[in-house]
Amino acid sequence: MEVKRLKVTELRSELQRRGLDSRGLKVDLAQRLQEALDAE
């Protein structure tokens, strides 16, 4: 999954699906999701 290409709504949805905080700026959301994906 290319996290950088996702829209903010898509980032928030993916973070919520993983039980992670979905608040913040797009750059923060993308970093949080990328870290979660790397840990999987």
Rank of each mutant, 00 (worst) to 15 (best):
V8G: 05
L25R: 14
L15G: 02
L15D: 05
R12T: 09
R5D: 15
Q34R: 06
G24A: 00
R12Q: 13
G24T: 00
Q34I: 04
L37S: 05
S13Y: 14
V8K: 09
E40N: 07
D21N: 07
R5K: 15
V3C: 05
V3E: 06
D38E: 12
Q16M: 12
G24D: 01
A39T: 11
R18H: 01
L20D: 06
R32A: 04
E10R: 02
A36W: 04
G24S: 01
D21V: 02
L11Q: 03
R17V: 08
L6N: 07
G24H: 00
Q31H: 04
M1R: 07
K4D: 11
R32N: 04
V8N: 07
R17L: 10
L6T: 13
Q16G: 09
K7M: 11
M1Q: 03
L15C: 07
L29D: 10
R18P: 03
A30N: 04
Q34G: 08
K26V: 09
L37I: 15
E14V: 00
E2W: 07
L37G: 06
E14L: 06
L37N: 05
K4F: 09
L33E: 11
R23W: 09
R32G: 05
E40C: 12
R23S: 15
L20C: 07
A36I: 06
L25H: 14
R17Q: 13
S13A: 15
K26I: 10
Q34E: 10
R17F: 00
D28E: 14
L25E: 15
E14G: 01
K26H: 13
K4S: 14
E2P: 00
V27A: 15
Q16K: 14
T9D: 14
D38Y: 07
R12Y: 03
R32H: 04
L25C: 13
K7W: 00
A39D: 09
R23C: 14
Q31P: 10
G19E: 04
L25S: 15
D38R: 08
K4L: 10
Q31R: 14
L29I: 08
E40L: 00
G19D: 13
K26R: 11
R32E: 08
L11M: 11
Q16I: 15
Q16V: 11
G19H: 08
Q31A: 13
V3K: 03
S22Y: 11
M1S: 02
E10S: 03
E40T: 04
A36S: 10
D21Q: 08
S13C: 08
S22A: 14
E2R: 05
E35A: 13
S13I: 13
R5V: 05
G19P: 02
E2G: 05
R17S: 11
D21E: 09
G24P: 02
R18C: 01
L15E: 03
R17K: 14
R23Q: 15
L33Y: 07
T9H: 15
A39V: 10
T9Q: 13
A30L: 08
D28A: 11
L29T: 11
L33P: 11
R18K: 05
D21F: 02
T9W: 10
L11N: 03
E40G: 08
L15T: 02
Q16F: 07
L11F: 02
K4C: 09
R32C: 03
E35L: 09
R17T: 09
G19W: 00
R5T: 12
T9C: 11
R18Y: 01
V8I: 07
G19L: 01
V27I: 12
R18E: 02
L33N: 04
M1K: 10
E10M: 06
Q34M: 06
K7D: 15
V8E: 15
K26Y: 10
L33G: 08
R18I: 01
M1C: 04
L11S: 03
L37Q: 10
E40D: 10
L29G: 09
L15V: 02
R12P: 01
L15Q: 04
T9L: 07
L33C: 04
S22R: 04
A39W: 07
V8Q: 09
A36P: 04
K26G: 09
L25D: 15
D38C: 09
A36R: 08
A30C: 13
A39E: 12
R5Q: 13
E35P: 05
D38M: 09
K4A: 11
T9A: 12
R32D: 11
R32T: 04
E2V: 06
M1H: 00
E2H: 08
A36K: 05
L20T: 02
R23F: 10
E40Q: 04
V27S: 14
E14D: 01
L15P: 06
K26S: 09
V8F: 06
V27T: 11
E35M: 13
L20V: 05
L11E: 06
G24L: 00
L33M: 07
A30R: 13
L15S: 03
S13Q: 15
L15K: 01
S13P: 04
Q34D: 07
S13M: 11
L33S: 07
G19K: 02
S13W: 12
S13N: 13
S13F: 12
E10K: 00
S13G: 13
M1Y: 01
R23H: 14
E35I: 09
D21K: 04
L37M: 13
G19R: 03
A36V: 10
L20Y: 03
S22Q: 13
V27W: 05
S13K: 14
L20M: 12
K7S: 15
R17Y: 03
T9E: 15
S22G: 12
R23P: 02
V8P: 06
L37E: 09
A36N: 06
L29R: 05
Q31E: 15
